[in-house]
Each structure stands twice: as C-alpha cells, then as structure tokens.
Amino acid sequence: MVTALVVENLHKSYGSVHAVDDIHISVNRGEVFGLLGANGAGKSTTIECILGTKKYDKGTVRILGIDPQRRRKELFEKVGVQFQESNYQDRITVAELCEVTHALYRNPTDYEQLLSQFGLAEKHKSLVSELSGGQKQRLFIVLALIPNPELVFLDEITTGLDAKARRDVWKHLVNLKNKGLTIFLTSHYMDEVEVLCDKISILKKGRIIFHGTVKQAIKNSPYDKLEDAYLWYTEEEGTAHESL
C-alpha cells in the first residue's frame, strides 16, 4: 500500500514545554486516521506542524511525498484542510466563499454539487455567519473538498454539533472514505472514531501512547468499549491501576 502521510521524529517545544514530543505517524492511502487526545494534548499543534502553519523544531513531514514547508503551493492543490476555528470574512455569503475557494485551484470540483450533497443548496445566498453550527461544519467540509483532494485534514469536525448533525457528517465521511479519499481527523467522540477510523493514535502530553486499530486499542485495555479504553490510556498511570 502507498503511504499518503509520513511523519517522523516530530518535535515542537514552547520554551521548556514539549507540545509535540517525538511523534511518528504513517497513514496509508484510502485510510481514515484518527488522532485522539484530551484538550491540550497536542493534537492541533501536531496538525499545524504537519501542514506547515507552525514551524517544528525537529523531524520530517511528507504529505503525498511532498515537504509542506518547501513546496506549499504544489501540495495544497491536492490536500484539503478544515481547521478547528472557522475562519471566513465578515459579511461573506456561502456562494461567495465557495466561489473564491474554487478559484484558487487548478482542478476543483463543482461546488454546487457538493453543496447539495451536504444539504446546503438552499443556503447559497445566506451569510456564512448566520448558518447554524451544523451547517457551518458541513460548509467547511465542502470547502475542504473543493480542491478535489487526495487527502483531507479535519480538525474536530463534529465538536459542538447535536447528535443528528454529527450522524449526518459521519454519513458523508463514510461516503468519502468509500470513494477512496484519505482522511486525517481529530475527534473527542469515541463513537465517531469507532465508526470512521481504520487506525488511531492517542496523544498524551505531546507523546503518542497508543497506535493501532480501534480493536487493538480495546484488546490491549481491560475494557470492552473504546471510550473506557481511551480513558484508561490517557489517565495517569496511578489512577489507571487503581481502576483495575
């Protein structure tokens, strides 16, 4: 299998704090990879170091074989990104944001089709700022898909959504996965991770403390639910043993 993303030996510190401490990640093409961890564990910093929006201290990153620090413009023709904070201009409409994103790429997809696929066809003329949380998240997935990417990064795509909206987003992501898209996501919801992810890594204080499939994660823990297993991995060792 061909690898879509390779991260080796990645380090990033802020002063004496190791935000990212010797991280290795490898994601194959067509795989859905989940990066898990509590708030402050270093998920977003890791993603940003990988994408090149933050400089890392040490290590190598290759996305689709490309170094994002050096060949940024070429890489992001093929990679779609959705950041945790939604960032768009005041007073911009859904159609305008899609149109201007569409114009940046050489081989973009038809965004009209994406909008209707994600149930946003009627929102064309609405201001992005007036969309509901779920609609916004769906719009940001649409934006990440406009480049016709081989790989997408989705940072906490369902945080703040209600149960129904989350299910809708999953449905779309499963569809994309079936079409062969490689997905790198972060999430706080273990039910979501179980449905979507082929492989996961669990981060704690900037280090990866588990890597493997969801099944392996459960098997290597004393529990039979991913959420319990996840908490067991991320808890302090002392408390983890007490709970045994």
Partner: peptide, 17 residues
C-alpha cells in the same frame, strides 16, 4: 483583520501566494 481572523492561515493551506 484577515490575519487576526485566521483567514490568512486558511489561505496558507491553499495554493494562493
């Protein structure tokens, strides 16, 4: 303002210069 709103950060992960 676009820098503050992280719109430029989003631009950085597109092919725009």
């Amino acid at each position: 303002d676009y820098r503050h709103k992280k719109i430029l950060k989003r631009c950085k992960v597109t092919p725009v210069s």
